[in-house]
């Protein structure tokens, strides 16, 4: 498969995630959309590494780091969502507007 097929696929997945982040109101669903965007970036990195960087495979290593940071991010985001839910009984991000002017 040519590289551009993977790149267009990753762009499409990224934009689906972007739509989810912009249009959803439940914090859990926004988190899922962020996961989609991170995966789109990883597809791009890994496909580019396999096609253009076959001796150094830097893209694969960076993708490993991205996955690690994504795991940390999900854990932390879950903790924040639980805390918000406990304090305000909602996961609707439009109702969490204390710092919005």
């Amino acid at each position: 498969m040519p590289l551009e097929a993977f790149q267009v696929l990753s762009a499409a997945l990224f934009c689906i995630g972007l739509y989810g982040v912009l249009a959803r109101r439940s914090a859990v669903l926004i988190l899922m959309s962020i996961e989609l965007m991170l995966n789109a970036v990883n597809i791009n990195l890994i496909a580019a590494a396999a096609h253009m960087d076959q001796t150094a495979f830097t893209g694969q290593i960076i993708a490993i780091f991205v996955i690690t940071v994504a795991a940390a991010e999900v854990g932390l985001a879950l903790a924040i969502i639980l805390r918000i839910f406990r304090n305000r009984s909602t996961v609707n991000v439009d109702e969490v507007d204390l710092m919005k002017w």
Binding site: M1, F6, L9, N42, I43, I46, A47, A49, A50, H51, Q60, A63, I64
Partner: peptide
């Protein structure tokens, strides 16, 4: 997709 670009560890 990762398997298609031979990134089996990923």
């Amino acid at each position: 997709i990762y398997l298609l670009v031979f990134a089996e560890f990923l």
